[in-house]
Structure formats: C-alpha cells, structure tokens
Write a protein that binds this DNA or RNA. Structure first.
Lengths: 205, 205
DNA sequence: ACCTGAACACCGTTCAAGT
DNA sequence: ACCTGAACACCGTTCAAGT
C-alpha cells in the first residue's frame, strides 16, 4: 500500500491531535504511517513545507461562498467559520499562525472576505485592512482559547499577587476567573460584536 | 564571573533576536553565555520555564500606570504599549502567545487593564471580556506583522490564483498587496479604531 | 515512483562529580 | 552555590541503494 501525499497530511493531523504541535515529529509521523522517517521526504521537502500544507488543509472550506443576507451577518459568519476551522484540530490556531501560507485554500479565504466586504460597501482600499484586522482578532482569540485549555484553573489565581491593595487585587482575580470560567464561544461573540458595531459606525459616516 | 538568573534571561533574548524563536537552543544559549548546556538547568528547570520568564520580561513596563485622560485614549495607549513590547524582540508575539504566563509582569498588565476599563465605566463582569478581546487582537495582529516580515513580497502574488474570474482575482491580489505594502502601524491603528468605536457605541446604550 | 537503512550533525535533559 | 563532563534518548535531513 503506497502512501499518497494526502495520506501523509491526514496522518500528520492525527498526530497533531494526539500529541500537539510540539509533539509532531517526522519519526513519529513515519511510525504512525508505517514507514521510515526518510521516506516522508519524498512527499514533502521538509517539516516546514508539511506544516504549511497542514495549515492549508485546516482552512479547507473556510473559503466557501457565504449565503446571501445582511453584510454584518455574513462577516460574522466568516469569522465564526475561521474560528471553528482553527479549533477543529489541536493547536490549530498556533499552527496556522506560525506558517506564512500562500496555498490554495488560504487564497480562497482571502477571496470570500474580499467579496463579502466589497459587497458590504467597504471601499476597496479599506477591505484588506478590515479583513486583516478581523482575522487577527480571530487568530489571537483562538490561540488564547486553545492555550488556556491546558493551563491552571484560573490564570493569576496562584496566590502570588504582588499588589499592595488587597481589595483591588481581589477584583482583578475575580475578573480573571470570570474570563477563564466563561464559555469561550460567548467571549468570542462579544469581541466580534464590538468589532462589528465599530464597523457599522465607521460606515455610517 | 558567575551567572545570575537575569543574565541567562538577557542572553536568551539576545539569542532570540539573533536566531529567532526556532533558533533558540539550550546549547547555543550556553555557548553565548560561555557555559556548558547542563549548567543552565541550575537557573531554569527547563526550556519551557525559560521561555515563560522571557515572555514575562518582554512584558516588562506594559503594566505601568497610564496617564490620566479620556478612557478611549487610555485604552488605546495600553494596546499600543502591548504591541510595542511584543515588537521589541524577534518573534516576541509568538513567544508570548505560546506561553501561558502567570508571572509578575503579566499580572501587572492585567491590573492596569482592569483599572482603566473599570474607570471607563465598563461593568465589572464585562471588563475581562473587553480586555481579553482587545489583547487578542493585539496579539494576533503582531504575530502576523512579525510573520510577514520574512515572507514573500506579497502574499498571493505568486501567480497561482486558481480563480476563474480573472478580473476579480486581480482585485483580490491588489487588496493583498495593499495590505502588505501598508505601514503595519497604520493597519494596527485602523483595527484599533474600529474596536474603540464599537466599544463607545456599546457604552452609549 | 516510492521507500529502506544507515549515517550526520544536531537536540533537551539528567546527574555524578568537581570547585 | 554554581558549573563541568559525559552520557541518554531523542531530533531533522540526506542519500546511496533497493524494489
């Protein structure tokens, strides 16, 4: 049974889900595929290239056309789609963030964003900035989401708060706990709504 | 001349600036400090701990009190401060994003955000969400900024646009070029202004 | 065309032993 | 207290050689 490029990619995403971004090893992937490590280099020039292909595969479908409707709902849909794709694999956000992707799917993503924002009436020379800003938010948020998953119950609740004002420090800890305890999807939606409100405001001028 | 913990940290940031995040090696850092690799483990339990300390050091000063003034200017100042700190070292954003920091400076950063947003009149239970959203944007944006630095002239301009509509694809490429060509600081300010407009809008209701 | 086997130049981490 | 020396169990990548 010969290996196709796509089998390697699928196997790599399985290893990613099992062992995380730092756990992916050419040797481990090779073993997972029942092959010697050196053999992988026939399919991918190096690990970096493999990572880029993985990142692109994660973005598959994010560039699909969006349903007709109000522009702000469309933009929201795009943002949610991107988040869902990044969440679909362990450390997906960090993987995509770490690779400067120019592959097929990434270009497709750029295309839909462009179409939607242009149809929304945003000036051509601003469309890129809006898309870049919003996707930066999605990427940053999702990285934090996936990072927080394996971290201590509440960031900062380790008791080593060095603040002199005990009452105030308690408030901060309460804030941090509230953030950590909240549904990540709700937090995401909140930030998204702020951004969309800002966008609407800027368009009404 | 004995090594102090802080010397190791400083040396590590120098290696970071020289060789990037992937280039940092316990052995290389040891050589840079004129020491054997094993010796570093007296100062830091492991590489991850070292990285966390580096991330925290990068955030030094970001938690300083902010000058009195309109709340939106204060919030903007905090966002810009964070961006500047992340930009101050090669791959700074990715370093901070990859470490779940609970150290001194990080807590201090949380403290100022809390103070400023609270004073702005944002409800206590919303303060964390706002701070989290905004810092997600800053983190995501800065990661992309630092990533784009070493990448091809214009993402997507590789000529392999698979779209059927040539004219539309040209528009997308123009958009991408416009984003890549623009001053990163301007792009950052734009997204920040959108977020702040949205925040103002939400507070007026 | 696709992969093995074996090698090369590295890694992070541990730990007895030195000073 | 702070570091060396040497080892252990790994890495990514290359490349002749096999099928």
């Amino acid at each position: 049974m010969q290996l196709r490029r796509d089998d390697v990619l699928t196997g790599a995403l399985e290893v990613l889900d099992g062992d995380g971004l730092e756990g992916i090893t050419m040797r481990k992937l090779a073993a997972h595929l029942g092959v010697q490590a050196g053999g992988l280099y026939w399919h991918f020039a190096n690990k970096q290239t493999l990572f880029e292909a993985m990142a692109d595969k994660i973005l598959e479908g994010v560039g699909a056309p969006v349903e007709p409707g109000p522009w702000d709902e469309q933009v929201g849909e795009l943002a949610r789609r991107l988040r869902r794709a990044l969440l679909s694999h362990t450390d997906g956000a960090r993987l995509v963030a770490g690779t400067y992707v120019t592959e097929k799917n990434t270009v497709a993503v750029g295309q839909v964003w462009f179409d939607v924002l242009r149809a929304a009436g945003i000036a051509t020379d601003r469309v890129g900035w809006v898309g870049f800003s919003l996707s930066s938010y999605v990427l940053g948020h999702t990285i934090e989401e996936q990072g927080l998953a394996g971290s201590p119950p509440a960031v900062g609740s380790t008791g080593k708060a060095a603040t002199s004002d005990a009452a105030e420090s308690a408030d901060v800890e309460a804030m941090i706990s509230a953030v950590a305890a909240a549904d990540p999807a709700d937090r995401f939606e909140y930030g998204l709504s702020v951004f969309l409100d800002g966008l609407r405001y800027q368009m009404e001028r």
